[in-house]
Amino acid sequence: MSDLNAQAVAKYRTNFLKEVEERVEEGEWVKMCMQCGVCSGSCPLGPFWAHPPQEIFMMIRAGRRDEVLTSDSMWMCTSCYNCIVRCPRKLPITHIMHGLANYAHRLGLAPKNQPTRVFATMFWNNLIKTGRVNELKLSLGLYFKDGFKQGIQNALNMQKTGLGLMKAKRLNPFELFSGHGCKDRKGIAAMLKKAREIEASRKHFAN
């Protein structure tokens, strides 16, 4: 169990709703759900959710902490915002799903090989280095994430698209060596640091 997780379990004991309220982005909305299920029905990826949003909200209220945090359901969200638009209680469901995913990830409970999570991690790590996304490194990283052989296969499959992108100057092969960045890399780093601090204090990670 990660330290952060152990600390959360100790602090909130059975009150998972409280934990979500305090620690998850927009988590204070979970209590407002009235179980109509319109979010679950509106989701274009709905059939892929083991537990749709409304059910997750109920599981949170019922204290099913492990089931929720280890679930891959909230990783299914593609931010289409259908659920937010339709929710009769105006819950920011998309944001709550991302908040829950982020929280599970932070506690080390998120499912390890969940592809959305893997991609998101790669994307984030790629981004924060220079303040800009390096498309080539990101694509290659994705091609080879399941091993070298599969990576070659993926690269060959995507060859036409890659060349097209290169022709349209959307992909620069030299990015592999250095790549472009934003003007004030230090500033970006400082900004991210500050954001982490604010998040930690607001979401009670510090205590």
Binding site: Q35, G37, S40, G46, H51
Partner: peptide, 11 residues
């Protein structure tokens, strides 16, 4: 009609 029966989650 599309949706989810929330009593036990049935699409």
């Amino acid at each position: 009609l599309h949706g989810v029966d929330t009593e036990g989650y049935h699409r």
